[in-house]
Amino acid sequence: MLAIQISHPVPHMKLDPVSLRLFVSVVEEGTIAAAAKREHIAAAAVSKRLSELEELLDSKLLNRTNKGITPTDAGLSLLYMARSVLNNLNEIVVQMRDYSHGRRGSVKVLANISAITQFLPGLIKSFMELYPLINVSLEEKPSLAVTKNVAENQADIGIFTRLPHGADIEVFPFRTDRLVLLVPYGNPLAEHLSVRFSETLEHEYIALRSGTHLNFQLIKAANDLGRSLKIRMEVSSYDALCLMVQAGLGIGIMPAGSAEVYKMDGAKVINLDETWASRELSVCVRSRDALSVASRLFLEHLLEGQ
């Protein structure tokens, strides 16, 4: 004999957060009337929602007596799950509102080494104290790469040493820094308080790597004098430059603010008497109006007091 199994059709209604919220209210209040008052809805509407919920889940969820309403075992299980679901839904609303108001989000920042070592640590710290739910991602890049990447929408905000560029970006003044000469003790230049750049060109240099604005700036300054820069070694960071100078391997030029960061018992900082030693650092964005709320808040934080 062929056995035919007949399954009951699943009701077309869908589980929705309103029904779950009403169910939780009924269980917590103990009566439909009290739940209806709490939710500002007619008692008949609450009762209808509960019946539809039991039909949808194919389970008896509530025991109704003269003393009130209590959950069945199935209803108690649903109560825990419903509270969790409603809490998660509420958290979605809260977090999305945080994004729209700029309290939550992320900002990708590209900056050259001068900005990172001199200015950004304190600024990022104060920003994150104001907006702890905004994540700031910081990556070090040479100035030209900063402008190019921001123009190509690979970062939200860039900070670079002001230089000619062909990038389609909006630029704002940020800070100024001043270049100084770093020499090891024992070098003849260490006897001076201030020197001209031309006086340094007989000495071998520890230079920041090719592609950085500082490397380009020093080579150009030497070429403008009809001289060449004697580069003994290229390094990728200011701390490496300081260590090499202190070891007596050469002299170096770096921003005064960066030189103050490093402890240098074996080297002396000397003023560089050149107009080009004063430099402008700038902030760039592809479009200020197109920034996310979080990115716009970070931009405004950078530009405060400018």
Score class of each variant (00 low, 15 high):
Gln118Trp: 13
Asn90Ile: 10
Glu139Pro: 06
Phe174Leu: 05
Ile134Pro: 00
Leu110Met: 04
Ser100Arg: 14
Ser106Val: 06
Ser114Cys: 08
Leu182His: 01
Thr147Glu: 03
Val107Cys: 00
Leu163Asn: 14
Ser106Phe: 06
Glu140Asn: 10
Ala111Trp: 00
Thr147Tyr: 05
Ala151His: 05
Glu129Arg: 12
Ser106Leu: 07
Arg178Ala: 11
Ser114Ala: 10
Asp168Trp: 09
Lys125Ser: 12
Lys125Asp: 15
Asp98Arg: 07
Leu144Thr: 14
Leu133Gly: 11
Arg175Asp: 08
Thr117Glu: 12
Glu91Gln: 13
Glu170Phe: 02
Tyr99Phe: 14
Val150Ala: 03
Pro173Glu: 03
Leu86Met: 03
Pro121Tyr: 00
Lys125His: 13
Ser114Val: 09
Pro173His: 05
Arg104Phe: 06
Ala115Glu: 06
Ile157Asp: 07
Met96Gln: 15
Leu89Thr: 06
Ile124Asn: 03
Ser100His: 11
Asn135Pro: 13
Gly102Met: 04
Arg178Met: 10
Asp168Pro: 11
Gln95Asp: 12
Val93His: 13
Asp177Asn: 15
Ala145Met: 12
Leu120Trp: 02
Val109Phe: 00
Leu181Gly: 01
Val146Ser: 02
His165Phe: 04
Glu139Gly: 06
Tyr99Asp: 09
Leu138Asn: 02
Ala151Thr: 06
Asn90Phe: 11
Tyr131His: 09
Ala145His: 13
Asp177Gly: 14
Glu152Asp: 11
Val171Ser: 05
Pro164Cys: 09
Leu130Asp: 15
Phe119Gln: 07
Asn87Ala: 15
